[in-house]
Computed example of a mutant assay.
Amino acid sequence: MWYVSTRGMAPRVNFEGALFSGYAPDGGLYMPEELPLLDRETLHRWSTLSYPGLVKELCALFIGSELIPRDDLDGLIDRAFSRFRHREVVPLSRLKNGLNVLELWHGVTYAFKDLSLSCTAQFLQYFLHRREKHVTIVVGTSGDTGSAAIQSVQGAKNMDIIVLLPKGHCSKIQELQMTTVLTDNVHVFGVEGNSDELDEPIKAVFADVPFVRKHNLMSLNSINWCRVLVQMAHHFFAYFRCAASLDSHVLPPVEVVVPTGAGGNLAAGCIAQKMGLPIHLVVVVNCNDIIHRTVQQGDFSLSEAVKPTLASAMDIQVPYNMERIFWLLSDSNSQVTRTLMEQFERTQRLHLSKELHGKCPQVLPGPCFGSQVPRSSPGRWTDS
């Protein structure tokens, strides 16, 4: 399995190369060069697996046994989930009227990002131990990424982590989760501005390729492909738990409601769709609604300012994983994606072409938090 930049101007890399990267050298994000298509037999076989079992199968598809042999991979994933409080790791709660809630908060920091970051940290340790290397991880956070990343790597001798925390823009508990860790390899800095603004210097650092290589820098934000890879399991697991039956001629669809900020879990759902999982995605945002405007009107443009809300991790105006989604919707056309994103970075305004916007309805727009979400599908679930 090879990985290419969404902007098409960087050399392709294997999983290890994508794992140890931030942005690709051309400013894009890494994506698999080809997505495997899953047949009905594979979906039937996967339908009885536990959540950790699904993570193992998905990771085996995208990593390859030449990099991590299957026995080693299974052991790393079991170790990653050993600190979760629920025996199923990710349970599904069934509510009224066909509404189901996937509980993704049973990790150490109560954030859903504990799931993907715990696995990512295990993969990093595996390769670093074999290569006898040290890396410095740079993370910008709007709330939950920073604390989950810290918990996943604190105490590791071959990793240092630098977290940029936007002052006054995280919840108190998240701020304390980051600033009270006294482990030597954890470095937390409070910065002025919001999470979108602190992403700008991080991207500038990763654009300096010689500097990145000299200091072995990488990122654990959802620009990192491994984050998206593990999050794909959320969608597969919930589908198998919610679908009425997999024995019908046409597999039944399930509606998936995804609250989102930077769009990593949304990108994971779009990739699962491309692989053959019959889900309909509904993206839910708060008043920082750039993704909603993009899907509704094709308007991928910044508002005047980020509006603080109680859901601080969703207070994002630059959902960088939309670049991955544009790449998918344009049939992996890196030239189209590069043109779009360079225009957005230059002008902070972008209107999608009619052709590209016409493909967006496969990701349905949802209303802001606090509004009623229409309950139209008996098998639907919400990612919480």
Rank of each mutant, 00 (worst) to 15 (best):
T179Y: 11
M314W: 00
F81Y: 15
I137T: 07
F206Y: 07
R12F: 00
K133G: 04
Q151W: 08
H187N: 13
A311F: 12
V135M: 00
R375S: 09
G28R: 07
V282D: 00
R324W: 03
K167P: 03
V139C: 01
N185P: 06
K203R: 09
T141R: 03
E132N: 14
L104W: 04
E33V: 03
E192W: 11
L246P: 11
N288G: 01
D247P: 07
Q177H: 10
G53Q: 05
S171K: 01
K203I: 02
E16N: 12
R324I: 10
M314V: 01
M159L: 06
I271R: 00
T141G: 00
P252N: 15
V285G: 07
W381G: 14
A313D: 14
R241G: 11
Q372R: 14
V90I: 11
R338T: 12
L340G: 05
E41H: 12
Q372F: 10
P367Q: 07
W381T: 12
D78S: 13
S116T: 08
E33M: 00
A272M: 03
D72Q: 13
G269W: 03
P91T: 03
E304L: 12
K307M: 05
T294Y: 05
T347W: 07
H106L: 13
F236Y: 15
Q362C: 10
E34P: 08
R83T: 11
V373L: 14
A111E: 02
L104V: 02
Q273P: 04
C226W: 13
G298L: 14
T337C: 14
G366L: 01
I223Y: 06
H234L: 13
P210Q: 04
S65H: 09
F189I: 10
L352I: 04
M159K: 04
G53M: 08
H249P: 08
D74N: 05
A268S: 03
G17E: 05
H187C: 11
M218W: 03
I173Q: 07
K354D: 15
K56L: 06
L49V: 02
H215Y: 06
S301E: 10
T309H: 01
V257Q: 09
S152H: 11
A156I: 10
D72K: 13
K203D: 03
R131Y: 01
T179C: 13
